[in-house]
Design a protein around this nucleic acid. Structure first.
Lengths: 147, 147
DNA sequence: GTGTTTGCAAAGTGTTTGCAATTTA
DNA sequence: TAAATTGCAAACACTTTGCAAACAC
């Protein structure tokens, strides 16, 4: 839980996580994994994570941040959220659940599992199978003008 | 309903639509409005609409397509759909309803109004009001591999 | 005529890719 | 040492912006 983390068992946990995902435990991936998974559930953008990484003193490139987010997603450690056409959000919570999207700030927040019930899912078009359901509840400050 | 449309009452209808929106009835906007609203409900991307416009023989620029889509949206004639982080979708159906997103093709399809029931909407975070709810049901060909 | 609209060209944003150098197992 | 990984630089896709010429009312 600090800058140049080498903390025993925690580090081991992250190494394990990467190994299970079939990814080598590189300095960059360990650093990012610590940021991503070391503080509970969270929502990330590549942009934001990169800034955070620099601030935490990690030495890595944007490219690596993008690569890592996609590798983690492919491995099932993260999931992409369909929310904003302008950037990709990733969620550390990979279980089915939904989101608030703050239209003023771009912040995202989980909706508690029982907060929304989607019932009566429709039949998908011919020959198509449902992959998943995303519910985005868009919110904004009570008094703000829709631009 | 053809290339160089000047069809009487139909044209008048579109002029009216624009006027109501506080927009001048320019050649470009009339042409686009015909494409957008002249064939039932549909889902559009700027890219796709531009291609369609060129094919229909309209002479206009991409800039104008982007501008027009946003102006129409501001006027409440279209709405943006949060669906794909890679491009903006617009929907001619501005009433609350939801969507299938075909992950293979990028195609979008409406879910009939009664096809999904979102119940028990959660309380938004402090000081925030709900602007809207988007439900995206992601589908793909029954046999396709998730990349 | 006057304010609006158009569209070119340029800039922007977020993301992906080619590839040589580096690192890990 | 072989294969995976990194990261620079360049390319990309889509979108927005500045501004002078063209247009609608």
């Amino acid at each position: 839980m600090n800058t140049q983390s080498q903390s025993g068992s925690h580090d081991a946990y992250l190494r394990d996580l990467l190994q299970q995902a079939g990814l080598r435990a590189t300095r960059q991936r360990l650093g990012l994994a610590e940021l991503i998974f070391g503080q509970g559930e969270r929502h990330l953008t590549a942009e934001g994570l990169y800034a955070e990484a620099l601030q935490a003193g990690l030495r890595l490139s944007q490219t690596t941040v993008y690569n890592t987010l996609h590798q983690f997603t492919r491995a099932g450690l993260l999931r992409e959220i369909l929310a904003d056409p302008r950037r990709i959000y990733f969620d550390t919570n990979v279980d089915p659940h939904h989101h608030f999207l703050d239209e003023d700030t771009g912040d995202m927040e989980d909706i508690p599992a029982d907060g929304v019930a989607v019932s009566a899912l429709p039949t998908p078009p011919q020959g198509k199978a449902i992959e998943g359901v995303d519910v985005i509840v868009r919110v904004r400050s009570a008094g703000s003008t829709p631009a």
